[in-house]
Every structure is written in structure tokens, then in C-alpha cells.
């Protein structure tokens, strides 16, 4: 176990160092991911220019959701970004090499291609979350719990990507449509889930539990009539969803046929 962890850490470290060789890519990536986050915030500004709140949620409260989403996205892009390449690896037969390594194929794949623009999302997420917590006069324990919720969010988002990528084993194609939909659904949770129809809320709380890592904790923090046991839901949802993703990955591998080239 200890040897394995050491191996994964070395693989991640090597991949990260290789990425840092492209310094211009790093600066451009960070700058553009910050710009994309800013562009979403500008839209929020336009919306709040027309109304004081969205379904009872004030600007600072929605910014908290924005920040948590950006932080979870940044963490996933930094540590587990390689999953985005699975559909094209399946088409080109590049997965064969990985399957011959004496490691867990999923964990090894996930950590061996960090994305540098993740730092932009991570920085923006941290800044926005801190800004919102300060303006909402959040209690001290919120500062302890919210980083844990961001990590849970990263696991939930990555697990959703793994499930989506596993479907590519069955439905082979060069595009990553299922992964993009996963990303868009995450973006949808930057706004309070209560603005969506009931079916969408159930999907985003139960089937793909994005709402569990920021909407529920934020609702609790902001006194929106929820029970304290909700605090437990976040890490449990993340762990359960990640376990489920592992099951989907194994199912996908059983469907895998090499290209034979």
C-alpha cells in the first residue's frame, strides 16, 4: 500500500514537472481560466443588476456557490484531469499500454496528466469562497469545513467524469460528449438548485450529487431550514459516488476491445 502511494506520488510529480516546462502555457492557462470565471461573474453582476436576489439567495451567497464550484473544478483539473483523454485513447488503442502496468489502471490514469490552468480555477475559487465567507460573517467552523467540502466536490465531479468516460468503452467515438455534459451540469450548480424544476434538482442532488458539496452545506450555513445531519451527507456522497465510479470503470474495462493496430 505504502509503496503504491509512493509510486502514484512520483508519477504525479513527474507529470507536473513536465507540464511546468511549458511556462508560457502555464501563464496563459492560469490567465484564461481566471478570465472564464470572471466572465461568469460578470453575468451574475448583470442578473443582480435587475433583481436583488435569486429565489431568496443574495449576491454574496451565490458567490459562495461560485467559489466552491471553481475550487472543486480546479482540484479535479489539477489531480485527475487525465480522464478527459479516455474516449480518444479507446479509439486509438492507447489504453493497451496502461493496462499492462502493474498498478490500478484508474488511479494511475487519473493522476498522470495534471492541467496547469487548474491553478487559475483553484485561485479564483479560493478567493471567491473566502470573500463570501467574510461577507457572510461565517462562523469559524465554516472555514474548517468548506475546504473539506471542496475536496468532496472534487471527488464527486471526478467520479461523474469517470462514469461518463466509462460509458465511452461501450459507445466508442472520438468525441467527449458525455464528459462535456458532466462539466455543464457542474456549472449549473453554481446557481441555487431551487431555481430549477424538481426533476433537475433530484438529478443534481441524488443521481449526480453535485449539490451535496456546496448547495446543501451553504443552505445550512445560511439558515435555509436544513438539519445538521446534512454535514455528513457531503463526504458520504463523495465516497459512495467514487466507489460507484470504480465499479463503472471495471465494467467499462470488461467491454474494452483493443484496436489491434
Amino acid at each position: 500500500m505504502r509503496e503504491n502511494i509512493k509510486l502514484y506520488l512520483t508519477a504525479f510529480n513527474t507529470a507536473l514537472q513536465a507540464k511546468f516546462e511549458y511556462r508560457v502555457d502555464f501563464f496563459v492557462g492560469v490567465l484564461t481560466s481566471c478570465m472564464l470565471q470572471l466572465s461568469s461573474l460578470f453575468f451574475l453582476w448583470v442578473v443582480f443588476h435587475q433583481t436583488p436576489s435569486i429565489n431568496g439567495w443574495m449576491p454574496d451567497q451565490v458567490i459562495l456557490l461560485f467559489g466552491m464550484t471553481a475550487a472543486a473544478l480546479g482540484l479535479s483539473e489539477l489531480f485527475f484531469n487525465h480522464i478527459w483523454f479516455v474516449p480518444s485513447y479507446i479509439v486509438q488503442g492507447d489504453l493497451d499500454r496502461l493496462l499492462t502496468y502493474p498498478v490500478n489502471s484508474l488511479y494511475f490514469l487519473l493522476i498522470t496528466r495534471p492541467e496547469l490552468h487548474a491553478f487559475g480555477n483553484l485561485a479564483t475559487g479560493t478567493l471567491l469562497t473566502s470573500y463570501a465567507l467574510i461577507h457572510l460573517n461565517a462562523p469559524w467552523y465554516a472555514w474548517v469545513f468548506f475546504p473539506l467540502f471542496a475536496v468532496s466536490g472534487c471527488l464527486v465531479y471526478t467520479a461523474a467524469l469517470v462514469i461518463a468516460a466509462s460509458l465511452s468503452f461501450k459507445f466508442v467515438g472520438p468525441t467527449s460528449i458525455n464528459l462535456f455534459v458532466t462539466n455543464i451540469l457542474l456549472n449549473a450548480t453554481r446557481y441555487p438548485l431551487s431555481i430549477y424544476p424538481q426533476v433537475v434538482q433530484i438529478v443534481l442532488l441524488v443521481l449526480v450529487p453535485y449539490g451535496a458539496f456546496h448547495y446543501l452545506p451553504a443552505s445550512l450555513l445560511l439558515g435555509k431550514e436544513l438539519n445538521l445531519w446534512i454535514i455528513l451527507v457531503t463526504p458520504l456522497a463523495a465516497l459512495f459516488f467514487f466507489w460507484e465510479a470504480g465499479w463503472f470503470w471495471r465494467w467499462g474495462l470488461n467491454q474494452y476491445e483493443s484496436t489491434g493496430s
Binding site: 511549458y22 496563459v28 492557462g29 490552468h117
Partner: peptide, 14 residues
């Protein structure tokens, strides 16, 4: 920059 992503994403953001 030899980077396509950054260019596309920054134009897209604006």
C-alpha cells in the same frame, strides 16, 4: 505562445 487553448478560451471569455 504555441498554445491554442489559451487563445480560444480568452476570446471566448470576452
Amino acid at each position: 505562445t504555441y498554445s491554442g487553448y489559451g487563445i480560444m478560451a480568452s476570446r471566448n471569455a470576452l
